[in-house]
Design a protein around this nucleic acid. Sequence first.
DNA 1: ACTATTTCCTGGATGC
DNA 2: TGCATCCAGGAAATAG
Length: 272
Amino acid sequence: MPELPEVETIARGLARRITGDRVESVWLGAKKEPLKSSPAEIVAVLEHSAILGARRVGKHIVVDLQRGDAGRTPAQWIVHLGMTGRVLVCEVQEPLAKHTHAVVKLASGREIRFVDPRRFGRLSVSSSAAFAAPGVEPLQVPVEEFVALFHGRKTPIKSALLNQSLLSGVGNIYADESLFRAGIRPRRRAASISRMHLKRLHAALRKVLGEAIKLGGSSVSDYVGAGGEEGFFQLRHRVYGREGEPCLVCKTPVKRIVIAGRSSHYCPRCQN
DNA sequence: ACTATTTCCTGGATGC
DNA sequence: TGCATCCAGGAAATAG
């Protein structure tokens, strides 16, 4: 599932491939679920716009545009991949994958395709350059600000990490992996965690996200980069998806519990 | 202002 | 073999 490192990988791959290109035309599928803006609005903003770049904001891919009309005003195309979304830059002759919901034809002759079997992903456009995620970026937030996020929160630390209005971009895999590395049980109430452990969590989260970005993300489920390539961080997972397997530190079997409907993996000996 | 629960969606895995 | 059921989970919506 695409979380911060996967979205970062896709956004970088996308930026490298499409920056400086121009949108010729847009095709949108019949299903309305993936669209947050109206089809007419998406077409109006994208068509004939120049692509200035692509970047990650939280779990969103933001494509910065300059409108092709007389105004040359800034605009943005925002893509959220949900669970199974893919954004691929393809040659036109490549066969259209099942569940393709949008095709953006470029002046260079290639196409950006949005494919999403489960349709949890979302497309939208904005007629400004102001898109911002509500939470703070985990790779940029200073440690004191990070610690303060959890002050007074009774919710389990795992739920707090997944809360996008606190932190932008952390999902199930990296929440579990960072909690393991920090030695904190996922069910611990956020407010009950010592300042020292929260500092440790801040460092662990940065480290795990940084390593995952270096390896191109985790390819579980159907995640691939903008060129269709897989990531390799799934080979470094220490607890996620390892229920019953020995902890890599102490050999105790990894436990799986459900928190807020999400499976959560931890070592009952290393995490307290 | 928070927190917890439900809902959306399909493919792959599992069970009888 | 075939059909039904379950499960994965990001985030919006809903309820408390």
